[in-house]
Design a protein around this nucleic acid. Structure first.
Length: 528
RNA sequence: GGGCCGGUAGCUCAGGUGGUAGAGCAUGUGCCUUUUAAGCACAGGGUCGCGGGUUCGAAUCCCGCCCGGCUCACCA
């Protein structure tokens, strides 16, 4: 094999002079065959890359309408025109069968030379698995009973140059599945279902929120200051303004400005970006639903959350009983525990604390390395409880230290009116009664700045305009964020967040040799 | 970033305890007018992830690196 070529370099060899067929790699060989096949298809009078095709049915529509019909019920003949990607083919001399796939479903066609004529039959013999074709004919049942199209005409619509994944096992290499999602979608019908369900989840949430008079808004993804969450941001740069901008880690502070402005119920479903590690539960860009409702508090949001999740489960999965990794999750209601109660209840081991223990500063500091009682409480919760919250649950009343944007409880300023939603051991969402006192908000930001100066680069920056906005009076408001990716994981039974994101972030894969091969074969074809 | 596992034909995988590789599908050529993982015959296709080392000889052993998965840390 010659070394790989970079683009501008002169070729150190010329394949024409080598005149060795087997010098070509398999892939080049295949490409060459397919490119030659395009010429043969064109010689028969078809276009290799067709234009419009007017179909009478999609494949799923035919199946929906006729899958249960008997041979007798298909008389008089039902004529159809359909298009699809050829996924299997069985040639038998002067006839053959193939399956076309469209929108995730397959339908068999029967192509008989006597029925389609010489030219279309020549075309049929030239088809490769993966080609996109159109077919016209009538419905019938084969000897083995499969509903099929008895073809009377074939059209050629688009040529595949590369071979499809293996027909029996499909595409299993997860790296190829994520990098070349188009192939994954062709080869693995269940993958398509996951993303259809994801779309249903988003549609369900939008429909429910719209019904409650929430307004769909879009706020900046590129922000001069980042806030609304504790996370490290991505940084980018605007050339004309010559300023650095941050990809948002949350839309929160903008959405609350809108509540100040009188958009009393707003929601946004969009991407957040956090410059952190990747895992089965974390992708650097992820989709959040955030919504804000004036004149409610976290108790009101708990009820709303319960209703939202229940209906979303019904719309997306058809049931509130969701099986996830061997567990039955019941989305018909949400268990509610304070953080302190959850620690007592889900503690594993002999030294189970009492509620008094969990309220004791000494006990808390003995069980965590964190400097304050509140941080210790949150730390202990995360370490010992979070992963055990399998059933959909609400954990409420968070320590003030970890919640710079939440309103404190009237009867206990050490805690804030905040809750998080958990299911399958994962955090699904976060909500609180919004802090709307600008003086208090200013103090909280200043506390964050102290943390930042101590080296915590996830601490909030001072957002002066946000304090200014609150100074115009924000109504009492409840706000909530729900992670769409994680919710989708649960409602589709996906173990990894990468399975619910069409193009999850991966390291770049390096050079793809296909372009070079195509160029060389093109040059070769043009040579006299 | 740490630990563990993996990378062999286009795809799905076997093999290997050192002697330059196999199967099925896919591909090519024949035969076959109701098959369906169609069948039969023949054929082509591999830098065994990359680089280095040990060795007469490395796909196999050693080291480094790249890519991926799981997991821990961090986070939502």
């Amino acid at each position: 094999m010659p070394p790989p070529l970079s683009y501008g370099e002169p070729k150190p060899y010329n394949r024409c002079f080598l005149s060795q067929e087997n010098f070509l790699s398999l892939e080049d060989d295949l490409l060459k065959q397919r490119l030659e096949r395009i010429r043969e298809i064109e010689a028969l009078g078809y276009r290799a890359y067709g234009h419009r095709f007017d179909f009478t049915h999609t494949i799923p529509a035919i199946l929906a309408a006729y899958a249960t019909k008997t041979a007798e019920e298909l008389l008089p003949e039902v004529r159809v025109r359909v298009a699809g990607r050829m996924m299997t083919v069985r040639h038998m001399g002067k006839a053959g069968f193939a399956h076309l796939q469209q929108n995730g479903e397959r339908f068999q066609i029967y192509v008989k030379k006597d029925a389609v004529g010489e030219r279309d039959f020549q075309l049929f013999k030239l088809l490769d698995i993966g080609d996109i074709v159109g077919v016209e004919g009538y419905l019938f049942r084969t000897r083995t009973g499969e509903l099929s199209i008895h073809a009377e005409r074939l059209d050629f619509l688009s040529k595949t140059l590369l071979s499809m994944p293996e027909k029996w096992h499909g595409l299993e290499d997860v790296e190829i599945r994520y990098r070349q999602r188009y192939l994954d979608l062709i080869a693995n019908p269940e993958v398509r279902k996951v993303f259809v369900t994801r779309a249903r989840i988003v549609a369900s949430l939008r429909r429910q929120l719209e019904a409650l008079d929430f307004i769909d808004v879009e706020t900046p993804m590129m922000q001069p200051l980042y806030g609304g969450a504790a996370a490290r941001p991505f940084v980018t740069h605007h050339n004309t303004l010559d300023i650095d901008l941050y990809l948002r880690i949350a839309p929160e502070l903008y959405l609350k400005r809108l509540v100040v402005g009188g958009l009393e119920r707003v929601y946004e479903i969009n991407r957040n970006f956090r410059n952190e590690g990747l895992s089965t539960h974390h992708n650097p860009e992820f989709t959040m639903l955030e919504f804000y409702q004036a004149y409610t508090d976290y108790r009101g949001l708990m009820d709303l959350t319960e209703a939202l999740l229940k209906q979303t489960a019904l719309d997306a999965a058809g049931s509130t009983d969701i099986e996830y990794c061997g567990e039955h999750l019941d989305f018909s209601h949400l268990e509610r525990y304070t953080m302190s109660e959850a620690i007592v209840r889900f503690w594993e081991g002999d030294d189970r604390p009492t509620l008094d223990d969990v309220a004791s500063r000494d006990w808390l500091l003995r069980h965590s390395g964190k400097p304050t009682a509140g941080e210790a409480l949150a730390d202990i919760f995360e370490q010992r409880v979070e992963s055990k919250l399998i059933q959909p649950s609400i954990i409420y009343d968070y320590p003030v230290e970890t919640s710079p944007l939440s309103k404190t409880k009237a009867d206990d300023p050490a805690f804030v009116e905040r809750f998080e939603i958990y299911a399958a051991g994962m955090e699904l969402g976060n909500a609180y009664t919004e802090l709307n006192d600008p003086q208090e908000q200013r103090r909280r930001f200043e506390m964050q700045i102290v943390l930042r100066e101590r080296g915590d680069d996830e601490a909030h920056q001072m957002d002066e305009d946000y304090v200014r906005a609150l100074s115009y009076a924000m109504p009492p408001t409840g706000g909530e964020g729900i992670g769409i990716d994680r919710l989708t994981m649960i409602l589709t039974g996906s173990r990894s967040i990468r399975d619910v994101i069409l193009f999850p972030l991966l390291r770049p894969e390096g050079p793809v040799d296909l372009v070079r091969s195509l160029r060389e074969l093109d040059n070769e074809a043009k040579r006299p």
